[in-house]
Design a protein around this nucleic acid. Sequence first.
DNA 1: GATGAATGAGTATTCATTCAT
DNA 2: GATGAATGAATACTCATTCAT
Lengths: 217, 217, 217, 217
Amino acid sequence: MKQAKTVKRNSVGRTPKTAGAFSDPAEKRRLLIVKKATRLFIKKGYSQTTMRDIARATNINLGNLYNYIDSKEDILCLSFEDYHDPAMEWFEREGIMKLDDPRQQLEKSVRRMLVMIYDVMNEILMMYRETRVLPPKFLKIVLQKENDLISVFEKIIAGGAAKKVFHVRDPFFAANMLVFQLSLFPLRSWNLKKYTREEYLDLAQETIIKAIISDAG
Amino acid sequence: MKQAKTVKRNSVGRTPKTAGAFSDPAEKRRLLIVKKATRLFIKKGYSQTTMRDIARATNINLGNLYNYIDSKEDILCLSFEDYHDPAMEWFEREGIMKLDDPRQQLEKSVRRMLVMIYDVMNEILMMYRETRVLPPKFLKIVLQKENDLISVFEKIIAGGAAKKVFHVRDPFFAANMLVFQLSLFPLRSWNLKKYTREEYLDLAQETIIKAIISDAG
Amino acid sequence: MKQAKTVKRNSVGRTPKTAGAFSDPAEKRRLLIVKKATRLFIKKGYSQTTMRDIARATNINLGNLYNYIDSKEDILCLSFEDYHDPAMEWFEREGIMKLDDPRQQLEKSVRRMLVMIYDVMNEILMMYRETRVLPPKFLKIVLQKENDLISVFEKIIAGGAAKKVFHVRDPFFAANMLVFQLSLFPLRSWNLKKYTREEYLDLAQETIIKAIISDAG
Amino acid sequence: MKQAKTVKRNSVGRTPKTAGAFSDPAEKRRLLIVKKATRLFIKKGYSQTTMRDIARATNINLGNLYNYIDSKEDILCLSFEDYHDPAMEWFEREGIMKLDDPRQQLEKSVRRMLVMIYDVMNEILMMYRETRVLPPKFLKIVLQKENDLISVFEKIIAGGAAKKVFHVRDPFFAANMLVFQLSLFPLRSWNLKKYTREEYLDLAQETIIKAIISDAG
DNA sequence: GATGAATGAGTATTCATTCAT
DNA sequence: GATGAATGAATACTCATTCAT
């Protein structure tokens, strides 16, 4: 919040991801911090996690921590990053948007997203909870990424509707609801414990897709 | 060392709601505190809201505040209360469970819940975010109330399925998804601003119900 | 500490003890306060006892309390009073100082003091502990009263020494030690629990007197 | 929620006293805190001494204080420690218990204890006053140490009684009284100011011992 | 005299962040 | 880069005392 400091403050605006990024020991250290801190944020909440907690968890001296990150808030921002990118990359990689069959397109996408989200459910929950703490500038970026995912689904739905395979009145709204439904598990896991991972995935997929496909009304 | 306080500690054990409750000026004051504090929790988050903030917002002296509430946590608990009860009361009052037509039953219920939730969206969002801060004992109560609502919808869905009006594989899961979908607006309002209240309500209702009724798969 | 307020502030300088003192309902109330507060001071210590505690214990409204006493400190002062007077009165009443036999004089006095102190041991302990809180002016009075008792014993001892019945080098010192020894039980009761009241009284009396009488050295 | 602190919490469990303890600058700092705080406790009482007072007195920043101690109570506990150990160590070192002559044994012991107590009279007084504040667990330890001293004297007295040198009915009681008498000066110094240190020591020693030795009754 | 709400200064403790070494 | 002590502002909560009714 303070000010653009020196150089380090690439955190929010960063994503260097140059080839050498992971061989950079400083980057590696930063990653460790974010990972451990995220675990703590998940367990105790952002506000209740102290820098001392993070120092202890990472085995990095409290003062030294600040050689890698700028502020506690900074860690949260770094923690938020990268949770959408893998999703978008998967769409790219799998060439989903080039599929002809809308139904297959939808099914594959929904299944994949459900799986990805299920596996990082704790992080998702944390994000829902701690979003408010984000600095506005960073919040915008996060919301934009969320929007990107919604746009992808909007396209898929609109495409299927054009081909009369899907029956939705408003593709944008449907995409919003769909993406929201993907988070059912992270936000309600306390009530869904009786299902196995596979049971959940099947049920969720079926329920989500039915609303797009069916023409009942 | 503490001491058995006085009676005040009705917070977790429920507000009395006796006929005279609202004529009790102390009760009124407590209500004011909770209301103003809730606004602050919504705006800044629970942890970031200080007791001084609350004192300022209520125009009640900081020390005096503690004549009405026991602790900051206490205020949060009081704030959580009463958000589910109106829902359950409505079901009772309207005799929803006695309706014969499952479709009508479902439509009326979903519409009503969407409306109620839309109108307290900020409070709902706050609850999603601050749940972790709740003392375990109180958390249990809150989750139980949430469960009550799910149970009602589970009954409606199971009833309609028995009559072959609805087509769902797992009524419990469907009820969970349905109740979750009701919160679409509070949790994603930032992306749904382009819809008017009525537009949103119609779209949401249609989308939610379609997944229950349709037999496509 | 504040100031000599109105009239009420007779507390420290008081001892009205007029015939009507106890029929004065205000005085009665004050007495109740002091008695109950003393109990609390004994149990929890002066600093740890709050005015709210005292209000609860006396069933007198917190604000109303201040119609009878001036301050918390005031209560402590009132509590200190009157613990020496009964002792001095006993000496007067019994005509101890007029006895001829120094040994009998000493024995009767020591026994009586031991009994009196044993029966208010908690109050004595409290006084040892909370003396520091007393306002200097009042402290002086208390110490003076303590001194009065020492003086009485000094006279008895000096008298016995003159008659060659007692063998002490320094009657003033001996009196100091004697009066101090009287408080053995209040200050060390945790280690003397195995004695009955009578056992303790006998042992203490014997030990105290032996040091005065004997000529061994 | 707390967290297992670090190692610091050796307070109740005793200071390590390893050879290097005093070269440890942190230990030195802690010692400074305890020493300065003890002075304040003596002067103003524990409850009336604030952490800010202690910070000011030690010239250590208020927050920084907590890098060395865990709580205010912790300081009091640390302050209580070590006041009995030197006594017991002296008995060991001087081989007092191995002396044959009970009278010499008693005289040396009483003299030494009187001296030691005289020189820390303020601390002793403080302990009498603030004992109540101690956490029960720690209180037990303190009382045990007190008991150790009493036991030593009990042995000496019993030994002398067996040899018909001392004449006491109940060695345990006599030891209790004796140890109590040792504290005459700390608790009554306000009335003994007219004696020099040596005068006091001589008088006290004589008085205490006479009660043990003499067979008058 | 009785009530209970109000006041405001104070309390121990915490914590993100900085800095000298 | 690493260390751990230092900083100072903040935090929830308390309490003796006052005051309007």
